[in-house]
């Protein structure tokens, strides 16, 4: 133990006695620690050079990251070790000074605000009121252009899609879906013709078309004509948070939303069977025209997608 202490030399600082214990490094063997740190710094420097070389020859990203990260890591650990083991061990102390000022100073400060300020306002009540009112109005009118020019008002646009009476049902490539196209049990994402390439079409009009085995299928009362030849169409926008309801469990005849696992029964008007979705997926009424094309009878009868305040049906 005594040997160890002899090796520790206080960090030499002008004007202080050599025996000053707080200036000793905390390492038992500073020479060894110094050598270890030197090796770390050398590794760091070597890796930095390697990083430069990797960048120069356009090496793979992982080589860039490994050399840069390794260099920073070794330099950093070395520096921490230097600070922790070779610099004055302390401990040092510093007094905290009370943050609060004397009572007199506080009073003077408060008086300046309350009395001086209050006095000014009291004497010029009209001016103060006008200024306050003016600033308030400024705040309000400044909001108008700021908010209003950010976007249009909804004005009922959330209630409708681009499906209308006679819309051709087309797939993602724009091909019209004919009555013989789908095998029983298969599913395809469809759009009203002309919107399949548009952002709005993909976001709002997206519809899943499923062919069920039963030719005269009625999903719900009052929808007897909606599913000709077993083709049922539901909005693909989940009524929970608007994710595309992209998974179809053919055996259970459930449409599943991969985001939060709402499940909709395609046999039964897409009533939610499981999960957080509160409403069924709206069903699109279809018909088959004389040429065998699938077409829409009308728009969805209820607003599609997640709930919102003005949703009235």
């Amino acid at each position: 133990m005594s040997e160890n202490q002899e090796i520790r030399t206080p960090v030499s600082v002008a004007g202080l006695e050599h025996e000053y214990p707080h200036l000793e490094p905390s390492a038992n063997n500073p020479q060894l620690v110094e050598r270890v740190i030197a090796v770390m710094f050398l590794i760091g420097i070597a890796l930095l050079v390697a990083f430069g070389a990797c960048y120069w020859i356009n090496a793979q990203p992982w080589k860039l990251g490994a050399t840069l990260g390794g260099a920073m890591f070794f330099l950093g650990v070395g520096l921490i070790a230097w600070g922790k083991y070779l610099m004055p061990r302390g401990p040092f102390v510093e007094e905290r000074h009370t943050l609060a000022n004397s009572e007199a100073d506080r009073d003077a400060f408060a008086a300046a605000i309350v009395e001086r300020g209050g006095d000014v306002v009291k004497r010029r009540k009209v001016l103060g009121g006008l200024l306050g009112g003016g600033l308030g109005i400024f705040g309000v009118v400044a909001m108008f252009p700021l908010l209003r020019s950010l976007g249009p008002l909804p004005k009922g646009t959330l209630d409708h899609t681009d499906w209308k009476n006679g819309s051709y049902v087309v797939d993602q490539s724009g091909r019209r879906v004919q009555v013989g196209d789908l095998a029983v049990g298969s599913i395809v994402t469809v759009f009203p013709e002309g919107t399949q390439d548009t952002d709005r079409g993909q976001a709002v009009d997206q519809t899943v078309l499923i062919r069920l085995s039963n030719e005269d299928f009625t999903t719900q009362k009052g929808r007897e004509t909606w599913a000709p030849k077993g083709y049922v169409a539901y909005s693909k926008v989940c009524t929970h948070l608007g994710c595309p309801v992209g998974l179809y469990e053919q055996q259970l005849q459930l449409l599943v939303c991969p985001c939060h696992q709402s499940m909709f029964n395609v046999n039964n008007g897409a009533i939610p069977q499981f999960g957080p979705a509160p409403r069924p997926l709206p069903q699109l009424p279809l018909y088959v025209d004389a040429d065998g094309n699938l077409r829409a009878q009308s728009d969805y009868h209820v607003p599609i997608g997640p709930g919102f305040w003005e949703r009235h049906v």
Binding site: P61, G69, G70, F73, G76, G78, G83, M87
Partner: peptide
């Protein structure tokens, strides 16, 4: 009670900045 800003804390904290950057770069790699 502790270490003074300069040089002890500065050395350690700068080293720590390097270490954090280094670990981030290694993760990125």
């Amino acid at each position: 009670v502790g270490s003074p800003m300069f040089p002890v804390f500065m050395a350690k904290t700068t080293g720590f900045l390097f270490v954090i950057s280094g670990i981030t770069a290694l993760l990125g790699a």
